[in-house]
Design a protein around this nucleic acid. Structure first.
Lengths: 337, 337
DNA sequence: ATTTTATGTGTAACCGGTACCACATACTTA
DNA sequence: TAAGTATGTGGTACCGGTTACACATAAAAT
């Protein structure tokens, strides 16, 4: 591998000039430029990223910290992040935090020492204080799905409350009368907001009772258990709105095992819009988040922040969309468009 | 951030001694050691990874190049890779190649300039010549699912041919008489081997005809189309063995649309063992690859290779296991254990 | 005619580590 | 007793870039 000094020697100029040429900083004569171009060509020279990183404290690398890439929500997000990162010449480091603060912190330490340019948090553990600290140390951070931590970083999220209402309205529109909700762990903002949205949408209805809300764990297994409990408690429910798609899948499984017809007896609606919803039987109605767009946006924001072209930190709330499918299709249903 | 020189000054020794202490290379007096420890503590010193990378050409970073992280096969693999990497103090860079040679090559260029320590290829585009070249340039490479490229790198794969036979035998054991196969793109070794396995297992049977083999694209859509074609061509098939789970899911969907009972009229078996197979209705029988283990192994091998503790390049063929589920359950079936 | 300003280039310090080599002691060993 | 070896430490050149600063010249402004 040729170095900048080799190029300088061959081109008959100093390394400073080469550097100036490479970074288009400062003046370089057109003729000199030609000589340099030729030398670079001849030596097949490629600037060394690590040396650049050391000298400039910029590595063109960002980190994506998420709970678990094998959770079906994240691959698409990661793909989006990587797509726009690579488009802008950045490389992505993948970190699985399992939502454990310790792991998250240890990753952050490692990443700082690597002169990472910025971090995307799609993990729920980090508290505002941590984010604050990062911000203070000059590491650009962008978060996904969390309340703005005192506006020290940008946040991308989607309209969970509205989404939950959309779901309930859709179910009502399809003729459902008693709609239960399986909510996710309340330490997750998303779960909380969806629960609030559900409550707001149903609390004024005559059948409403808090017993229609039941806790899940955002996973299939939790959806199954919650559904079993729910059906025992309220054999009369005719719709289940799950706080995420995995739990909705669980509901589907549980209902199937119980011999309950979906959507005939009970309609099921999920939230997230992961690919799985298209392969269940029946296909799952869901409130889809624009997952890819969220990833792309969060990545773009981070890069802007890194490159100093971001005006101000902001919270972006993306629209969700109800995707009606078989699991909520009721023969007597009339979609209220 | 304190530097090694700050520590040296505070401890009253030279940077060389600090470096020796940090890397446990060369002698350091016990008392000196204590002084250094104290100084490091006091300054909260952490060696800078980038500087180390530049000086030592070792960055403790590996790259994982795969076709697409949003393809459900890869998240679990990526998780495994990252798990063992982080266990050994390595960081993982994620690259989506879309199986396009150009992208792959461009990633490799970027990665080389970053002094990446090694690469895991789970992508199918790279030819032996490329791998050879990498090997020559001293970049450790380990591949997934490909024929050993002239043994210039280690390869981890699973027993595709055996797996296909397992599938066919299982289907026969369940009483199926006419088993079709939807095979994947033949540029993928895995697809080819599974096809061969299928052929070997059925060619001696009286009903056998090449028309029972039909091409898919390793995706759901292709599975659907292939199944439609197949059922038109052979309305008498009673089992479909798909070259991967996604196509099996497609088959399930297509059959469901046609009103064909699964497993009643047609049994369906997939290959891979991705999570999706557990949420279809009926749940999908599949030949499961040990995906996590493959990722963990490939990662461990790469790290060994990087650290020079790998004796020799080798091909590891992992066992696959038939996971019988509803989609192949036939009332008159008698599992041949 | 003189001062600015724009253009063009080189020297060398610096980023923060690693590691080779020299040098100094204190023990062994021949 | 001289040579050899294990222990301990420091100086400093490197890794391969960036960039502040000094300096030179030509064109423009006063």
């Amino acid at each position: 591998m040729a170095t900048i000094r080799d190029v300088a020697k061959l081109a008959g100029v100093s390394v400073a000039t080469i550097s100036r040429y490479l970074n288009k900083s400062g003046y370089v004569n057109v003729e000199t430029e030609q000589k340099i171009k030729k030398a670079i060509e001849a030596l097949n020279y490629e600037p060394n990223t690590v040396a650049r990183g050391l000298a400039g404290k910029k590595t063109n690398t960002i980190a994506l910290i998420l709970p678990d890439i094998s959770n079906p929500f994240f691959p698409e997000l990661a793909r989006a992040v990587e797509d726009v990162a690579s488009m802008y010449g950045y490389t992505v480091i993948l970190c699985n935090s399992d939502d454990e603060g310790v792991k998250e912190k240890s990753y952050i330490e490692v990443l700082k020492k690597k002169y990472i340019d910025g971090i995307i948090f799609a993990s729920n553990t980090l508290d505002s204080a941590d984010v604050e600290q990062m911000a203070k140390k000059g590491i650009p951070v962008v978060c996904l799905d969390r309340v703005p931590p005192k506006q020290s970083c940008s946040v991308v999220r989607s309209k969970n409350r509205e989404g939950a209402k959309l779901a309930v309205e859709h179910l009502l529109g399809m003729g459902c009368r008693k709609i239960a909700h399986i909510y996710g762990p309340q330490e997750f903002i998303t779960a909380k907001e969806r629960l609030v949205g559900y409550e707001e949408a149903v609390k004024h209805l005559d059948w409403y009772s808090p017993t229609f809300m039941i806790q899940g764990d955002f996973r299939i297994e939790g959806g199954i258990r919650a559904t079993e409990l729910l059906m025992e408690r309220h054999p009369d429910v005719d719709a289940i709105f799950a706080g995420n798609d995995l739990m909705a899948v669980g509901a589907l499984k549980a209902l199937h095992r119980m011999g309950v017809q979906v959507p005939g007896q009970v309609a099921v609606c999920g939230f997230d819009g992961i690919g799985m919803t298209e392969i269940t039987q029946p296909e799952l109605t869901t409130v889809a988040q624009p997952i890819y767009e969220m990833g792309a946006l969060v990545s773009r924001i981070l890069i802007k922040k890194i490159e100093g072209t971001l005006e101000a930190d902001q919270t972006y709330e993306l629209d969700v969309a109800l995707v009606p499918r078989e699991s909520t299709l009721r023969r007597n249903g009339h979609e209220s468009s």
